[in-house]
């Protein structure tokens, strides 16, 4: 049983941060609790943020897609704004995270803030250039999701609150797909790869390749991205694709553990990157489908 002295409930972001700082003792935010109730982190109190007004999903006037930190994964699966953005890649990733009942309460913010190398929402959000919004008691700050993760289980937050992430409107038309490699249908990622390509005029204008579970933090494979950027689609031969995939594999830094060896993980980065890029390029229109299946 989790030894906890107090369960506080916040009704807005500033109050959440204030309740967090009030003491006595050590506190932590809690959203769905689907990580925390397994891990029972040592703390004296928690601050529940489910009613802090940060659970909405919205399209801003500028076309950005805003995902409130306390939005549940199930909300992301079904929400029309999300299914309609970048081919529904975020919905697809959410639908593969956890099992059905867990998704009812697990939040996107909790997934990112827990900051596991295998956090399943991270790759697709990284690939779609997400920006994080962070609240302090009296100000908000934003920064790219790439800068959010500091190390395994560590983010820039300290005792601040993640309010949500925004995906820029430009990405709405990108072709994006991710693949989660697992042992069984419902499992933690052994490797996850997400690819987003902004294609225009027969040319890859923008390329993003994001990797999960193969480095201390979810990461972007920027060298491989650079290789793709500006390329004419017609010029991307299987050989070129092989090189891009190999470079992405070279960029990651996987671990050996009881789930998979580093060697296997690295090779899978290569296989999945190649398959996703190939699939996205050979595909026009609906690219929401799980890329590598």
């Amino acid at each position: 049983m989790w030894k906890l002295q107090e369960y506080r409930i916040a009704t807005n972001p500033a109050e959440a941060v204030a309740l967090m700082r009030k003491g006595p003792g050590k506190g932590a935010y809690i959203a769905g609790g689907t990580d925390m109730l397994l891990e029972h982190p040592a703390c004296d109190f928690v601050v529940d943020i489910n009613r802090a007004g940060i659970g909405d999903v919205a399209r801003t006037p500028g076309g950005d897609l805003f995902l409130g930190a306390a939005a549940t994964l199930q909300e992301l699966v079904g929400n029309e704004f999300v299914t309609g953005f970048a081919g529904g890649a975020v919905s697809m990733a959410a639908s593969q995270c956890g099992n059905r009942p867990v998704r009812s309460t697990a939040t996107v913010g909790g997934n990112l803030c827990n900051a596991l190398p295998s956090a399943d929402m991270a790759p697709v959000l990284l690939a779609l250039d997400a920006t994080c919004y962070i609240a302090d008691e009296d100000y908000q700050e934003s920064l790219p999701l790439t800068d959010f993760f500091v190390g395994p289980r560590l983010t820039v937050l300290e005792d601040r609150l993640l309010v949500g992430v925004a995906l820029p409107g430009e990405c709405a038309g990108w072709r994006c797909a991710s693949h989660k490699l697992t042992r069984t249908a419902e499992d933690i990622s052994l490797v996850q790869v997400a690819v987003a390509l902004g294609v225009d005029d027969g040319r890859i204008q923008e390329a993003r390749i994001a990797l999960g579970a193969v480095a201390p933090v979810p990461m972007r494979a920027s060298l491989a991205e650079t290789m793709l950027t500006g390329q004419e689609i017609a010029a991307i031969t299987p050989d070129v694709m092989g090189d891009v995939a190999a470079i992405a594999a070279g960029e990651c830094d996987p671990l050996d553990d009881h789930r998979a060896s580093a060697e296997y993980r690295r090779d899978m980065v290569s296989v999945l990157t190649r398959r996703l890029v190939t699939r996205i390029l050979s595909d026009d229109g609906d690219n929401s489908q799980d890329g590598a299946a």
């Binding site: 099992n99 069984t184 419902e186 933690i188 789930r259």
Partner: peptide, 11 residues
């Protein structure tokens, strides 16, 4: 059951 996988309805 996170690491000891048994078959689910999808497997």
């Amino acid at each position: 059951f996170l690491d000891y996988k048994i078959a689910s309805s999808l497997d």
